[in-house]
Design a protein around this nucleic acid. Structure first.
Lengths: 228, 228
DNA sequence: CGATTGCTTGACCCCCATCAATCCTCGTGG
DNA sequence: CCACGAGGATTGATGGGGGTCAAGCAATCG
């Protein structure tokens, strides 16, 4: 099991504001686990007794709507922290986290983080900034969901994927999503998402090879996202 | 100009965690203003040099979508604070705040709040909890926008209005919204909102008299919101 | 008391959800 | 190594929800 104070991931999130001694203490009590693609890290309604720090891999954070369809709220890359909200307001999880690739995840017990929150104002402030940023994203997502067409949302999602996950060596998006996941991100039926994807392909905006997606024409995608 | 330490409103938000001396200091440097219905408190892109505390009245917080339609993100009642986000991450406002009734608003300069954030951990923690709660609401809204029909969303909105603003003496919802505002909350065209409202009226779920809305059959509304 | 703004209703049509059938892909076991 | 089954991907057909345009009506205000 690696040590927190040497973990590259700690540079990426709020944990970077912790002091060396705080990191050492956390490192001593954290647990590390491997999560296989498809496994559920935590589910709605569960009581989380700590937070998760993602060392590697990607997961989706989603919520069931009352009509039984899953809505993916966002995708979380390595270096991010999961479950801070439940920590802060001491409620059960409102969302579900599922691995969409094999992952390595560290679990930090509640009491450790709470004690740091109380003693280290920089850490609290950093968390506050993270949440402010998440809130801004959430507000923008609400506007998109409420006002944009499925086509616009798909274009925007592809641009977001590029910005957040980038390409691998072959100019292929470095994230593999099922068609169903894609549909559940933009909030539509699987068939609709598929139809639009193949339309984009025909128009030479993207290429498709199974789950491998390459974005060819970014300017065009941006125009589509704006409604042209 | 009233004093913060005597203001009833301070009981309702994060300011309640401030000490007496902190409140006195804030009270000394705050400015108070009356805002008329329809007036803009701040707009997208503006640089806010502090936060607003609502003493009385209601305002809408909205954002323009790229297709030119306004999306109302939420309604804010007296006792709430506006602009904490821009304070925390030091960015320009992402949203627009517009009075939908006559209001009285206090403005607290940035430096004052920042200094309290640094010195009073209870205050920071309280803000953190507020944001966690807002984030939860936002996530739930995303799911609703993405998955529910306009009819479901209208039903849900009416239930929310009742929970947040209650009735006046005549069992009329204690908030007056234009049809356009209603449409912009649930993310639809004005005509669609109107049509559904009159359908609800015909089914004896609500009554309408201009902007006066009374909710008659709450259980039925809940069923509609769930998709029946 | 006009005039401007907001409200209401009708007509039309397109986007997209849904159902159904087929095809593809990949892991498993014979 | 191949057959086969299961789940995912794709395409077609169809109907309804809801966006949009247009016209008439009510209400609010200078």
């Amino acid at each position: 099991m690696a040590k927190c104070e040497q973990c590259i991931v700690k540079q990426l999130n709020s944990l970077k504001t912790l002091t060396k001694s705080e990191l050492l203490r956390i490192s001593a009590c954290k647990t590390s686990q491997f999560v296989k693609k498809g496994d559920v890290i935590f589910d709605e309604g569960e009581h989380l007794n700590g937070v998760f720090c993602i060392s590697s891999g990607i997961c989706k954070v989603s919520k069931m709507s009352s009509n039984g369809r899953e809505q993916i709220i966002h995708l979380v890359n390595k270096g991010s922290i999961l479950g801070e909200r439940s920590l802060v307001n001491d409620e059960v999880a409102n969302l579900k986290a599922t691995a969409i690739s094999d992952m390595e995840v560290c679990f930090i017990p509640r009491e450790e983080i709470i004690s740091d929150l109380k003693k280290n104002p920089d850490f609290t402030m950093s968390l506050l900034k993270d949440m402010a940023s998440s809130l801004k994203n959430a507000d923008n997502t609400i506007v998109d969901m409420a006002q944009k067409t499925v086509k616009q949302r798909l274009a925007e999602m592809l641009l977001n994927l590029e910005a957040s996950f980038g390409y691998n060596s072959d100019h292929v998006l470095d994230i593999h999503l099922s068609r169903e996941d894609i549909a559940n991100i933009i909030g539509t039926a699987t068939e609709s998402a598929i139809r639009l994807l193949s339309e984009f392909k025909k128009d030479n905006v993207i290429t498709l090879k199974g789950k491998n997606i390459s974005i060819i024409d970014i300017p065009k995608l941006k125009k589509i996202a704006q409604g042209f």
